[in-house]
Amino acid sequence: MAKDIAPETLAAVRQPIETANGLPNAHYVDPAVFDVEKHAVLFAHWAGLAVAADVPENGAAKPIEFLGIPLLLLRDRNGVVRVFENICRHRGMILVSAPKKIEGAIRCPYHSWCYGTDGRLVSTPHVGGAGHNTHAAIDKSLLGLIEVRSHVWFGTVFINIDGNAAPFDEVHADLMARWSDYDQPLHHGGDDSTFTLEVNTNWKLAVENYCESYHLPWVHPGLNSYSRLEDHYNIDEKGKYSGQGTLVYRQLKGDDGAIFPDFKDLDAKWDEGGEYITVYPNVLLGVQRDHAFSIVLEPVTHEKTREHIHLFYASDDTDTALREKNAAQWKVVFTEDVFVVEGMQIGRKAPHFDGGRFSPAMDGPTHCFHDWVATQIAAHIEAQ
């Protein structure tokens, strides 16, 4: 076992913030440590995969690769969003290679075994010989598509690869209660309300940067000009989630003075406030009175991440020009962070960097995340 994931090293990360070190370099630059983390953190918990709007109508299907695993995001005939392993149970052939609408059945392009959108194996042509579509040894009831545990919350599709996590609404009960005002329809803004950033960094650095507001004056001077560092507060829910909030949210206005409609029946605290929280491990969420967003971090490799940003509104009838302006504004903000997370990734190759120290006043959310990651890895190693 690498010294960087030895129990004593992880224990140093889990110390109180005043004395804790950050995660060591190997957690950002070593493929072997990334592989351990993949199983301990990303497969063992409810990781973000996509948004439900990626499959907008019944029968819509989208192939997605998650850390090398071929998956199929699908909205079945009854409108339920589901996730399956994107392989035929016969010879493991990929079933769907591009986004499409399933008009009839999901047909394997190799031997034409067919599956319903609920995953049932419905047809096995010639499996018993030419002209014989059944065989006593082939029990279709046992050979449906392999379904991956999934849960949709906040318009986002979460998956649990190893199947052992506690139910999503139990794991995240506190956060769901905190944001219960937003337990109402979230309308994805469509093609003009989503974009992807390709970033040369480990996925955790994107989380760490998002969690804290300490960097605002220097990295986001435009945002800080009206939502200042001193207007922000830390959200430190150890073992659960972390992030930041602001007491000053400025609604976007169009050239004609138009604004987005507010979400219904919000508490007065949202009139001028907003919160930005990481749903561990890899989903970044933001809420304001008139729109929200979800950022699904796709860990491509130990040093490459795709950030999939999606904007949501209180109504499906919002002004196109205003949506485009909002997406452009957020793209500027999120792009401003790229040089920081890429710079920290390069910095993790400095051999004498020990993971860094935290400001007890400013870095609480990041320390919470490090503590959670270290805890999951330690538990995984202990269970081996």
Rank of each mutant, 00 (worst) to 15 (best):
Ala2Leu: 14
Ile5Tyr: 15
Ile17Lys: 07
Ile17Pro: 04
Ile17Cys: 07
Glu18Gly: 03
Ala20Ile: 08
His27Glu: 01
Tyr28Pro: 08
Val29Trp: 02
Val36Phe: 04
Glu37Gln: 14
His39Arg: 15
Leu42Ile: 10
Phe43Ala: 09
His45Cys: 09
Val51Asn: 14
Val51His: 13
Ala53Asp: 15
Asn58Lys: 14
Ala61Ser: 10
Glu65Ala: 12
Leu67Gly: 03
Leu67Gln: 15
Leu67Ile: 14
Ile69His: 12
Leu72Asp: 08
Leu72Asn: 09
Arg77Asp: 13
Asn78Arg: 06
His90Asp: 06
Gly92Leu: 08
Leu95Val: 01
Ala98Met: 01
Pro99Val: 04
Gly104Ala: 05
Cys108Lys: 03
Tyr115Trp: 09
Gly116Leu: 05
Val122Ser: 08
Val127Met: 04
Gly129Ser: 09
Gly129Ala: 07
Ala130Met: 10
Asn133Arg: 01
Asn133Ala: 03
Ile138His: 01
Ile138Trp: 09
Asp139Arg: 14
Ser141His: 06
Arg149Met: 05
Arg149Phe: 00
Val152Glu: 14
Val157Asp: 10
Ile159His: 09
Ile161Gly: 03
Asp162Val: 04
Asn164Ser: 10
Ala165Tyr: 02
Pro167Thr: 05
Phe168Gln: 12
Asp169Arg: 09
Asp174Glu: 15
Tyr182Asp: 03
Pro185Phe: 05
Leu186Ser: 11
Ser193Lys: 06
Ser193Glu: 04
Val199Ser: 01
Asn200Thr: 07
Trp203Glu: 06
Cys211Glu: 09
His215Gln: 10
Leu216Cys: 00
Pro217Cys: 00
Pro221Ala: 09
Pro221Gln: 08
Ser225Thr: 09
Glu230Asp: 13
Asp231His: 14
His232Phe: 03
Lys240Leu: 14
Tyr241Pro: 00
Gln244Gly: 08
Gly245Glu: 06
Tyr249Met: 07
Lys253Val: 12
Gly257Pro: 05
Gly257Glu: 05
Ala258Leu: 00
Ile259Glu: 14
Pro261Ile: 03
Pro261Tyr: 08
Asp262Asn: 11
Phe263Gln: 05
Lys264Phe: 00
Leu266Pro: 00
Ala268Pro: 00
Asp271Ala: 13
Asp271Pro: 00
Glu275Met: 07
Tyr276Thr: 01
Pro281Glu: 05
Asn282His: 06
Leu285Ser: 07
Val287Cys: 01
Gln288Asn: 13
Asp290Tyr: 08
Ile295Tyr: 02
Val300Ser: 04
Val300Ala: 02
Lys304Cys: 02
Arg306Leu: 12
Ile309Asn: 12
Leu311Cys: 00
Leu311Lys: 01
Ala314Trp: 07
Leu322Asn: 10
Lys325Met: 11
Ala328Tyr: 01
Lys331Gln: 15
Phe334Ile: 07
Glu336Tyr: 03
Phe339His: 12
Val341Gly: 02
Glu342Asn: 11
Gly343Cys: 06
Arg348Tyr: 10
Pro351Arg: 11
Phe353Met: 12
Phe353Trp: 13
Gly356Tyr: 06
Arg357Glu: 01
Ser359Tyr: 06
Pro360Thr: 09
Pro360Asn: 11
Pro365Val: 05
Pro365Tyr: 05
Pro365Asp: 04
Thr366Gln: 11
Asp371Tyr: 15
Val373His: 04
Thr375Ser: 15
Ala378Asn: 10
Ala383Glu: 11
